[in-house]
């Protein structure tokens, strides 16, 4: 990134796009000074998924506590900060609005610039907190709300070369987990079960021909139909076999398409980002193929895969260097497109 000869760039970042209230302080885009996440999983699991109204209510309860904790853990004062960053979208609009309005109010009182960050750019830049990014770079972003292949030719340049046409990968995990009567969030349970299974139920793969797009709703339906047919015949399903079959389908499609794109665009580095990149099955598969291909592959540590504010701060540091600034009229943009800065 740019030189920090004059003075460190210290960003307070806030993220409230879904069900985590998070704040972090990042130095020079690479160093996490503090990283606080207040999770709502305990509350939301009652409903088997994230209820937007409940998420918004929890964010209001947590927001100043989380920001205060981030400053205290960093042993910093507002006067030490260079800018305030916040997730502008995509996400749940009511949830986004809490982080955005808190960020604007804080920035206003302390006379700091404000930077609105794209949530997916944040997930990608979580990797900058692990090691420097090498371009051209291919990012596989997989989470409860996203499944995208993003090509980056340099910092701040994003080209979405493939995305899901229906369900996100994480969404499919959650839905299949529900079919298998597992608690929310389902991903980690399926991942664990899949590893324990000695055999797999065969499920289809959606290749969508030469496209880099994804589709997971057919796979989800195949799992539901399988269970339905077994129920009709009065037979018990083996959840582990179903979990392994489902996971194998998801992982094979994600890995194959990512590899093909990495070769076509001749990238120097492939990164995985987003909540589903915490999945062991996916990590292992990607690590193996890219080691064979001799292409650098990185995936952030688990706590930087799920939603957090450190990643927003990392992306914002590069945006700050590039001169990107937001306004006090910033609004939540639930369907925000990933654009270059």
């Amino acid at each position: 990134m740019g030189e920090f000869t004059m003075k460190d760039t210290i960003i307070l970042a806030i993220e409230t796009s879904c069900d985590e209230t998070a704040a972090a302080i990042i130095r020079n885009g690479t160093e996490i000074i503090s990283n606080v996440v207040a999770s709502q999983i305990e509350s939301q699991k009652r409903f088997g998924g994230v209820v937007p109204e409940i998420a918004s209510r929890h964010h209001v309860e947590q927001i100043t506590i989380v920001i205060e904790e981030a400053l205290e853990k960093a042993n910093m004062q507002p006067s030490d900060l260079t800018a305030v960053a916040v997730t502008e979208g995509p996400g749940l609009v009511g949830a986004l609005l809490i982080g955005i309005n808190a960020a604007k109010a804080f920035a206003f009182v302390h006379n700091l610039p404000i930077i609105g960050v794209h949530h997916i750019a944040g997930h990608i830049y979580a990797n900058a907190l692990v090691q420097p990014m090498q371009f051209p770079l291919l990012a596989l972003v997989v989470s409860g709300g996203h499944t995208e292949l993003v090509l980056m030719k340099e910092h701040g340049s994003f080209e979405v070369i493939g995305e899901t046409r229906d369900d996100a990968a994480g969404e499919a995990y959650d839905k299949v987990a529900r079919v298998l009567n597992m608690p929310y969030p389902g991903g980690p349970h399926i991942d664990r079960l899949a590893h324990e299974a000695d055999e797999a139920v065969e499920f289809p793969r959606a290749w969508l021909e030469d496209s880099y797009d994804f589709s997971f709703s057919g796979l989800k339906s195949a799992v539901i139909n399988y269970k339905h047919n077994m129920d009709q015949r009065g037979e018990e399903i083996n959840p582990a076999h179903v979990a392994r079959g489902f996971q194998e389908s998801v992982v094979e499609v994600l890995t194959t398409k990512t590899l093909r794109a990495a070769k076509e665009y001749n990238v120097k580095q492939v990164i995985a980002a987003g909540g589903v990149s915490a999945n062991k099955g996916l990590r292992t598969s990607l690590e193996q193929v890219f080691e064979q291909e001799g292409i650098a592959f990185t995936v952030p540590p688990l706590k930087l895969c799920t939603d957090n504010a450190a990643m927003i701060g990392a992306a914002a540091s590069y945006m700050y260097e590039a001169g990107v600034r937001g306004e006090l009229s910033m609004n939540g943009v639930p369907g925000k497109e990933l654009k270059s800065w």
């Binding site: 918004s56 209510r57 209001v60 927001i63 100043t64 920001i67 205060e68 507002p78 009511g94 609005l97 809490i98 309005n101 808190a102 604007k104 109010a105 804080f106 206003f108 009182v109 302390h110």
Partner: peptide, 14 residues
């Protein structure tokens, strides 16, 4: 929520 978030964040900041 917008009013309360802005109010409490300004209050806490000051």
């Amino acid at each position: 929520r917008i009013g309360v978030t802005v109010a409490k964040t300004i209050a806490w900041s000051l």
